[in-house]
């Protein structure tokens, strides 16, 4: 056999699952941190400062970025292979199955929307905060950024759309992780599905609450 042996389909799915799963943990942490901005703006500033350009924050950021890139690269590799496997001739009529979620069939498209959101988000926040600090400039205040960005209604709306996409992505993604790793079974199938949806809702709600809270504060 030649040396260029590619990873098996199951292994590639494992990579998607592990990177995706770690990103879920990151989102949980990030979401919890955001909620602090509602409970205690001072506390939030402290966290921002704590996660500045320190070595541990930078290491975590690099790992995180690596996860995102890996998750994305494999998403495209897999999608390309899958597209090829379908063959040249497409079905004229494609039906929908009642028990198949819309999200499951559109993970790539939703994922791209999520990615666009991330890019926007990095430009809005991270660029002026951690990146500025790395460059040796004074980082912007997290609370000020939150207040200024969500006082622009179009930003709030874009963020809410992004978070909706994130919900769809996670609603399938979390249970999908369990399936790909192989932890699904007859007993846990429904439970995993429900836990996944609850977790997705929890994460997204944490983010949404901040957007809505500061948007409403501005509007009222």
């Amino acid at each position: 056999m030649n040396k260029k042996k590619s990873l098996s389909s199951v292994t590639k799915k494992l990579i998607m699952a592990i990177t995706g799963g770690l990103l879920v943990f990151f989102l949980l942490f990030h979401g919890a941190m955001n909620v602090v901005s509602i409970i205690s703006p001072d506390g939030y500033e402290m966290i921002c400062e704590f996660l500045g350009a320190n070595w541990y924050a930078l290491v975590a950021t690099v790992i995180l970025a690596f996860m995102v890139v890996l998750h994305f690269v494999y998403a495209f590799v897999l999608s390309y292979q899958n597209w090829r496997a379908r063959g040249k001739q497409r079905y004229a009529v494609v039906g929908r199955q009642n028990d198949v979620s819309w999200a499951a069939k559109n993970m790539l498209v939703i994922g791209v929307i999520v990615l666009c959101g991330i890019v926007l988000h990095l430009m809005n926040f991270w660029y002026d905060m951690q990146w500025a600090e790395i460059q040796g400039k004074a980082p912007a205040s997290g609370m000020e950024k939150i207040r200024s960005i969500f006082s622009e209604s179009y930003y709030s709306i874009i963020y809410l759309i992004w978070l909706a996409a994130l919900w769809f992505h996670l609603s399938h993604g979390i249970s999908s992780v369990m399936q790909s790793i192989g932890w699904n079974n007859n007993v846990w199938q429904r439970r995993i599905d429900i836990i996944g949806k609850i977790l997705a809702a929890l994460i997204v709600l944490m983010f949404v609450s901040v957007v809505v809270y500061y948007w409403l504060i501005y509007l009222l």
Binding site: S8, S9, K12, K13, L78, Q81, N82, R84, A85, R86, Q97, N98, D99, V100, S101, A104, K105, M107, H172, S175, S176, Q179, S180
Partner: peptide, 19 residues
């Protein structure tokens, strides 16, 4: 390995197959 070789796609857990 054989399945991959033959050009089948990768599972993306849509579960349309089960349906």
């Amino acid at each position: 390995r054989k399945m991959d070789e033959l050009g089948f796609g990768n599972c993306s857990n849509t579960y349309a197959c089960q349906a």
